[in-house]
Design a protein around this nucleic acid. Structure first.
Length: 788
DNA sequence: TATCCCTACGATGTCG
DNA sequence: CGACATCGTAGG
């Protein structure tokens, strides 16, 4: 029987016969689609074809057919032999295209089907036994129906007991599992408590029953997306270990296969996309947070966080003591985590779907993607040229050695200024790529050897000015589309139904456009080009330099500039006129914009050496809010005490220009520290380990503190956030650190917190007003000693 | 499946 | 003591 069905793709696998697509029909039936017709290809130089044929014959590998294309031959191979034939070809030919792209990913691009929309399949119904599907179709034709995809999400989260500081899957049981979806809001647990809301809490008799209930819930719920936060590294491996103990199979796959769990890889369920959204949050979202835990990420994205702070020890205590009220709280806490995971997933889903559309990758692949791969797949999907192979490790190594110069940073003029304006380029690097036709295949073209061509001043390289290159075409497309969307957005109220989607689209385009230049300079790139990447930055330096010189000529007093922006004292100059003139000079789509006006601003001097300190300044907006850049106050590795003090003093100066008031405030803070009138939390210094503990050469304070934590039995590895305070004692700071969790208010060293924290964060501000560090300290004694 | 680029500051340890 | 290396975090 021949049928035509619409479906949402869920997963793809490859078998002997061809591609197998797992889908959900609009009425929520499971459909299995067999695509025997998909025959991927690669290309190699024509002269290597005979050798390849011989090698294939020897190894019993089948080439479906071939096709000449100029110097190259397009070799078509069925999926079952593709990887082997491509590997064989690699041994024969150093030049090879489109050969090392995973089939699971390129399938959608090759078929020109978007995996995140409704699709249509036509074909014969057939019967199969392997998978639990409602219908199976032998496809004759597949296409996108271009109807947006809204997968139904099931989020989950587990809680465990923990005898020690951290749960150990070998010993400590799972005590609760929460699920959250549109119509399921449930906590499952195996300790009964009376005040449980029967609508939300389901009691089972044991941990084993709890795990069985986990599997059953997924089977019953039939979600189209299973979502966890940190689930690939914690929840699922933990579940796997516990399930093994009871001989329970986590067989949620369409073929009753178990969830594939390997702590190093994302968990995989046949047929059902499963994602750990912490990966996307960390790798793609630019959240301006140094911690990507669920609590902070939810706060950033949703404006609300976890129900409270429950450490492993507290959870263990609640469970072992078993008070009704506390168990109730724990189950609410667990459910809230699942709910936050659900809501965060829903929040980022629109962006993920847009990225899926732009790259041709399935949602699950998008969730785990890195910036490099994002750009790469955008290019692959839209490429009009051949796709080079990934560079070899040796090649990557060689590329890594060759660095190039980046953006121009102009030394600031230290001081406090009023009436400042800021100009910056709209998407500087993308617009340079577009305006100067920067692309690997436009370098040193013969047609522009003597006339034309875009050149950077000090470069022997030129880029063709006649034939548009691939990268500029793609970037132009991204930039123009984004500009159009932003124009529509300006006229769309934020509560409008289309607002979130437009925003997501705009963000998705931005992510890709912004990483384009970096991708060309990335050693692991298929389209790596030193000339392109260095050409982009060189032209960037040229244009910001030009704009700064012109601004000066125009009457602005330029105070500072960094890569694509400049800050200047207005001094009555006409910003509109200036922009008009500059933009008539700049090659489109390059464009200078007016970013903002500031009431006042302060640029600091360097602490070591002389001159203005780059990347460190404070501004006060017209609306009265304080903007800080690079300063201690916005760094994670300074105590709150110093950060707050610095912020308050800058506020006083920028708002009131009252140095004496600022000084008084500083001294009141100092005396508070000396009197121990502070909170421990405000003394804590927070540093993250960026490598395994044993690999450190220098024994800095955070390394010593981390070792203390490790000796206490904590899991201290890469990424561990060390929290310590400094106590009195020997001369090296590292010899007097104490873990924050063990510290009390008598422990800290006031001298360190005054001199190395508060004063270090503020004295450079006071120096701008004629104070010296000595005078600041002396002012304190005068105050205290009255008259001396 | 490895993680887009370079520029910059500053704290602290290490070594001669 | 000073020069330099190591390390983390930030800006764009």
């Amino acid at each position: 029987m021949s049928i035509e069905v619409s479906f949402y793709p869920q997963d793809i696998a490859f078998a002997e016969e061809g591609a197998i697509i797992f889908g959900i029909t609009q009425d929520k039936k499971r459909i299995l689609i067999l695509d025997r017709l998909y025959v991927p290809y690669f290309l190699l130089p024509r002269e290597n074809l005979l050798k390849l044929r011989d090698a294939c014959r020897e190894n019993n590998l089948q080439i479906a057919h071939t096709q000449y294309e100029g110097e190259l031959t397009r070799v078509f191979v069925k999926p079952k032999d593709f990887v082997e034939v491509a590997r064989t070809a690699k041994k024969i030919s150093s030049k090879l295209y489109n050969s090392d792209i995973p089939l699971k990913k390129r399938y959608w691009v090759d078929k020109k089907v978007n995996p995140s929309t409704l699709c249509k399949v036509r074909g014969e119904v057939y019967s199969q036994m392997k998978y639990r599907a409602d219908v199976a179709v032998n496809a004759e034709h597949i296409e996108s129906a271009n109807v947006a995809y809204q997968p139904s999400i099931l989020a989950f989260d587990i809680e465990t007991a923990s005898e020690q500081a951290y749960p150990d899957a070998k010993k400590d049981p799972i005590i609760m599992i929460a699920f959250y979806s549109e119509n399921t809001k449930r906590v499952i647990t195996w300790k009964r408590f009376p005040s449980a809301n029967p609508e939300n809490v389901k009691f089972v008799d044991s941990e084993a029953a709890l795990i069985e209930e986990f599997v059953q819930t997924i089977k019953d719920n039939r979600p189209e997306l299973l979502v966890g936060y940190g689930s690939d590294n914690f929840d699922l491996p933990y579940l796997a270990t516990r399930a093994k103990k009871y001989n329970i199979k986590l067989n949620s796959g369409w073929d009753d296969s178990e969830i594939e769990i390997d702590a190093r890889k994302p968990a995989k369920i046949t047929g059902l996309p499963s994602i750990d959204i912490s990966y996307f949050a960390r790798r793609i979202l630019d959240l301006d947070t140094n911690n990507y835990g669920l609590d902070l990420v939810a706060k950033k994205l949703l404006g609300k966080g976890k129900l409270g702070k429950l450490g492993a020890a507290k959870i263990n205590e609640i469970w072992s003591v078993g008070l009704d009220e506390e168990l109730k709280f724990l189950s609410d806490y667990n459910l809230t985590d699942a709910q936050l995971t659900f809501e965060v997933a829903n929040k980022i889903l629109p962006v993920q779907l847009e990225l899926s559309k732009l790259t041709g990758l399935a949602l699950r692949d998008i969730n785990y993607i890195t910036y490099g791969a994002l750009v790469e797949w955008f290019i692959i999907k839209n490429a009009t040229i051949l796709i080079p192979q990934k560079p070899s490790p040796a090649e990557i190594y060689a590329r890594r050695k060759k660095s190039y110069v980046g953006g121009l940073v102009v030394e600031p003029r230290p001081g406090l200024y009023n009436d400042i304006c800021c100009f910056d380029f709209r998407s500087l690097y993308p617009s340079i790529i577009a305006s100067h036709n920067i692309s690997p295949e436009t370098i040193n073209c013969l047609c522009c050897q003597f006339r034309g061509g875009y050149r950077a001043e000090n470069s022997k390289v030129w880029f063709c000015s006649k034939k548009p290159g691939l990268m500029p075409a793609l970037v132009k497309d991204l930039v123009e589309r984004r500009k159009r969307i932003n124009e529509i957005l300006k006229q769309t109220p934020s509560n409008d139904a289309s607002f979130a989607e437009l925003m997501a689209r705009q963000h998705a385009l931005k992510y890709i456009a912004a990483a384009f230049y970096g991708y060309m300079g990335y050693p692991g790139s298929r389209f790596y080009s030193y000339e392109c990447a260095s050409g982009v930055t060189e032209l960037g330096r040229k244009y910001i330099g030009l704009v700064i010189r012109e601004a000066e000529k125009f009457g602005f007093k330029v105070l500072y500039g960094d890569t694509d922006s400049l800050f200047a004292e207005t001094q009555g100059a006409d910003a509109e006129k200036f922009l008009a003139i500059i933009n008539s000079i700049l090659p489109p789509p390059m464009e200078l914009e007016f970013r903002a006006k500031y009431k006042s601003g302060l640029f600091l001097e360097r602490k070591t050496g002389s001159g203005g300190a780059k990347k460190r300044y404070a501004l006060l907006t017209e609306g009265g809010s304080l903007i800080l850049r690079g300063l201690e106050a916005i760094r994670g590795d300074w105590s709150n005490l110093a950060k707050k003090g610095q912020t308050e003093i800058l506020q006083i100066l920028l708002e009131e220009n009252d140095i004496e008031k600022a000084e008084k405030h500083l001294h009141s803070l100092i005396s508070k520290i000396e009197k121990r009138d502070v909170k421990i939390e405000d003394l804590v210094i927070n540093v993250k380990l960026t490598r395994p503990l044993e690999t450190y050469q220098a024994q800095g304070p955070h390394v010593v503190a981390a070792k203390i934590a490790r000796d206490k039995g904590q899991a201290v590895g890469r990424g561990f956030a060390v929290r310590y305070i400094v106590v009195a004692g020997g001369d090296k700071v590292s010899s007097r650190v104490k873990l924050a969790e063990d510290a009390s208010i008598e422990d800290y060293d006031p001298e360190y917190y005054v001199n190395q924290q508060l004063l270090r964060a503020t004295y450079k501000i006071f120096e701008l007003f004629g104070y010296s560090l000595e005078k600041l300290k002396a002012g304190q004694t005068t105050l205290e000693g009255y008259g001396n």
